[in-house]
Design a protein around this nucleic acid. Structure first.
Length: 285
DNA sequence: CTAGGATCCTGTCAGC
DNA sequence: TGCTGACAGGATCCTA
């Protein structure tokens, strides 16, 4: 369930562990679930990771032999580095601190100076090997829209018009409209912009669209400051589990609680098959 | 082309 | 306790 801030947090954490601290060459690739690893694993053996990039919610590991690995965690993927330090990010679960591998481990990439575990309960995520110069041709990467920081309000507004009959929330979850938002930050951005999630996208005004785009940036920046969902805030100092959502969420997982803006009760409904949280008072139809 | 629902897969939790 | 259905922070595929 990692969204842009979580993936970016992983990118930074793994860059520190694998590049700065020198993870070294890939020694072995062990695949426990065929559908979790696409392509020929031997193509990354003997190579070193020279850069870790991110496009939307996808991570891209560039290796020294002009081969790259695209990794998308989808709903329940997580990456855990065990080396000199331990770093874990992605779908928060006890795997962050558990002994690995376990029953949810799908791929293990062993480096000279550490081991990268790709765990994924539901097997929706994947790693995919391809030449570095072909990454931009990958179906998912190629169709990805700009991120909220790169997109101009006018462009965003124009894109909304192409889906004028769909609920605005569904439209901003579409990665070809804007990249990076998932179910949490879609709800949070709409709260920020005071727009009801089910409103038709065509009925969002130009100024509201600008506010929504700004909201997307603000809520994801806030989460990024909190470190996304990583081992640092998942495990509190007393060893108990923490809920990082508490750190910034205004509506997500707050059904039944009071809106911090107007005091009304936050509600949860189902929209397009996704749990959707909003304030019925201050978010407008 | 768009909109909406089903689908991939595994685990957990509420309710009976 | 054991079962059943709903649900889970994603994206694609299929149908109308």
């Amino acid at each position: 369930m990692p969204e842009l801030p979580e993936v970016e947090t992983i990118r930074r954490g793994l860059s520190d562990c694998i590049i700065k601290e020198k993870g070294g060459k890939v020694l072995t690739v062990k695949i426990y679930s065929g559908k979790s690893f696409i392509g020929e694993p031997s193509r990354i053996m003997g190579a070193e990771v020279i850069e870790i990039r991110r496009r939307g919610k996808a991570l891209i590991f560039d290796l020294s032999n002009r081969v790259s690995v695209i990794c998308h965690l989808r709903m329940t993927g997580q990456l855990v580095w065990v080396g000199k330090e331990r770093f874990a990010g992605g779908h928060p679960s006890d795997n962050f601190i558990a002994d690995l591998p376990n029953g949810q481990t799908r791929v293990i990439i062993k480096f000279q100076n550490g081991t990268l575990f790709f765990n994924d309960q539901r097997k929706f995520g994947f790693m995919k090997v391809l030449p570095t110069n072909r990454v931009e041709d990958d179906d998912f990467i190629a169709r990805l829209a700009k991120e909220p920081w790169q997109m101009k309000p006018e462009e965003f507004y124009r894109k909304l018009q192409r889906h004028k009959n769909a609920p605005i929330k569904m439209v901003i979850l579409d990665q070809t409209v804007v990249a990076g938002l998932g179910n949490i930050y879609a709800d949070e951005a709409l709260y920020y912009a005071k727009i009801k999630p089910k409103r038709k996208a065509g009925l969002v005004s130009e100024s509201e669209a600008a506010k929504l785009l700004e909201g997307a940036r603000v809520v994801m920046e806030r989460s990024l400051e909190a470190g996304g969902s990583t081992i640092r805030n998942y495990v509190k100092s007393d060893g108990t589990k923490g809920d990082y959502l508490e750190l910034f969420a205004e509506v997500f997982n707050r059904e039944g609680q009071k809106c911090r803006r107007c005091g009304a009760e936050i509600v949860k409904v189902k929209l397009g098959g996704r749990g959707t949280h909003y304030c019925p008072e201050c978010q407008k139809e």
